[in-house]
Write a protein that binds this DNA or RNA. Sequence first.
DNA 1: TATAAATGTTATTTATTATTAACATAAAGT
DNA 2: ACTTTATGTTAATAATAAATAACATTTATA
Lengths: 73, 73
Amino acid sequence: MNKTVKIKNRIKEFRARHDFTQEELANRVEVRRETIGHIEKGRYNLSLILAWKISRALESSIEELFKFEELDN
Amino acid sequence: MNKTVKIKNRIKEFRARHDFTQEELANRVEVRRETIGHIEKGRYNLSLILAWKISRALESSIEELFKFEELDN
DNA sequence: TATAAATGTTATTTATTATTAACATAAAGT
DNA sequence: ACTTTATGTTAATAATAAATAACATTTATA
């Protein structure tokens, strides 16, 4: 029984609360707009530092912003 | 004023509490022993999923296990 | 003190994140 | 309807995490 971990996130939701566009958030955390887009869509397993920068920019925490689920395959 | 983020971690400390060697922890999170060693020494900016796996294996949380600091340079 | 177990460290390779650029589509505003 | 503004998406490249292998050093322990 092999397990993989997937991440869901609430970036879009928190971004809306702050009225930030993807580009504004990207500027604040110093990555490209597309990178934020890809992360929101769960396309990659971002680094811990980037996760922290994003959670700070959104006045949140990593654990609040990112939800982890273990899946069997 | 440019800012960079550095990570400090308490993996070694938590590992000791559980009486895990680097290798045991590595097996549990499915990475190499050297990878755990490098992370403990702060040599790389691990992925969010790996950070989560490690914090779970040590019955802790990401925010508890990893401390972030902003530095000027 | 000799032996084994655990950790340190470095160099090279592989895998994956993130950048870049380019264009498409959607939504909002004039 | 036209024009911005925001987001979606893809392909190619660059940057870096993680794997691998090999050997050194430290710590425990027989």
